[in-house]
Amino acid sequence: MSKSKTIGVLGGGQLAKMLCDSAKKMGYTSVILDPSSDACGKFSANLHLIKDYTDEKSLKEISELSGVITYEFENVPIESVEIIEKIGGNIPQGKTPLYLSQHRIREKNAVRDLGVKTAKYKQVSNIKDLKEALNEIGVPAILKTCSGGYDGKGQWKIKSESDLNNIKLESKEYILEEMVNFEKEVSCLVVRGTSGEVVNFPIGENIHKNGILNLTVVPAEISKRLEEKIIENSKKIIEKLGIVGPLGIEFFIAEEEIYFNEMAPRPHNSAHYTMDACNYSQFDIHLRAILGEKIPKIKLLKNVVMLNILGEDKEKLEKIQKSKKGIVHIYGKNSWEIGRKMGHVNFCGNDIDKLIELAKSF
């Protein structure tokens, strides 16, 4: 493998797999570092280093093999990036995006300081803090762990003070957030290159089921004013925070106002539609950004509805495959567990209402 034509990826999940697919399409080889021998990224990577993320020997090896290194998920240890930087590896995104996105208070503070609107929130660490914060914020509210939670895990909805009886706080940091009575959740993926240029993908409207993303509808049914405001705020966040690479940002819409929800410095589940509905996928642009290449203008070629396939959706998947009405992407994970993301399907066409109906029909 030629170092100048090799891309290293910290993490070996489905996002790494699709990054490696894009790398191959662009004429690059790839190497992933992931401690699991079952990591599905191995099916697309040229080399899989099965070691812990902080293993110095492996970080040195991936640095020596790769012309550029990236990460596929936001919980890669910051220590890994520090080791790579110390030994002279090329990791353009650096540790700042991880530092911010790994802690909800840091993330919210950074965005609020830019003048981007958020729901009310307070940091809490014990029941006394929680009761005081609840008196200030009111109900309904949502309590989340400051780090580590995803897909509805590490979260508790509080509709009345009696709900506190069901919550047992451990020695962790938590964030209590006002629960916004939103009409829609939307997401915007922005990507910033090493030269500072920024592009955005079309805004998607997200529909969840049991706390996990179920459908993303593109284009989102929102006003032109809101669309412009979401893009403006997304570009402000990635530019002012100096983030390089992709940044998936979720917003709530309530009464023609937008509220920042959360962000992730990686390819985003809600942007998987880009693989079949845009002139370039989010993975293609991610790689171009960190490689320092000129980033092309993004175009939506057709309307699309993206459907997540979870571990409980085997029968649904079989029906979709038999119908031949969607473009199926399966990640190759070894066990189909309830709630686990196993793949996605893109339904592309002209009539967005018919696409939504089709995606919901299986």
Rank of each mutant, 00 (worst) to 15 (best):
I298Q: 01
V116N: 07
K324C: 04
A119L: 04
P219E: 05
F347K: 07
K354G: 05
F252D: 12
P97A: 06
W156Y: 15
S270W: 06
N46S: 13
E315Y: 10
L300Y: 05
S160C: 04
I258C: 03
T216A: 07
S58P: 00
E170L: 04
Y280V: 15
F260I: 06
H329V: 03
V328S: 12
C20F: 10
D113G: 06
K144H: 08
N206W: 02
M263C: 05
I237R: 06
K5Y: 11
G343S: 05
G88R: 13
N214R: 02
G89K: 01
K131G: 06
T118G: 14
Q123L: 10
F201L: 13
K184M: 09
G245R: 07
L10I: 01
S234G: 06
E177V: 10
G193W: 02
L10E: 00
E255A: 14
L114I: 08
L19R: 01
N90K: 09
T96V: 12
I62Y: 00
S323Y: 07
V180S: 08
T194F: 12
S160K: 08
N135Q: 12
L355Y: 11
K120G: 07
G154L: 06
K325A: 04
I230H: 01
I222M: 06
A110K: 11
G148H: 04
N165S: 09
E72M: 02
P97T: 07
L49W: 03
E61V: 13
N346I: 03
I253V: 13
K299A: 12
K159H: 15
I158F: 12
W156T: 03
Y150K: 02
N181Y: 09
D351L: 10
K229H: 08
N233F: 01
V81H: 00
I87P: 03
N181C: 07
L143E: 12
S80Y: 05
D313K: 00
N308F: 09
V328M: 15
G94T: 02
K86Y: 02
S58R: 00
P267G: 13
S36I: 01
D313F: 00
G12H: 01
V180R: 08
N233S: 11
K25L: 02
K235E: 14
I290K: 04
M18F: 06
S44H: 07
E64N: 13
V217N: 05
K235Q: 15
C348E: 08
D34L: 08
L300F: 03
K168W: 08
V180Y: 11
P97R: 09
L114E: 10
I290H: 05
L300V: 07
N350Q: 11
K209Q: 14
R225K: 15
K157F: 12
I253R: 11
K209L: 10
H103I: 03
L247H: 09
L176I: 09
M18W: 03
E177T: 12
E337K: 10
R340W: 00
S4D: 04
E293I: 12
K297Q: 14
V198A: 10
R106C: 01
S44I: 03
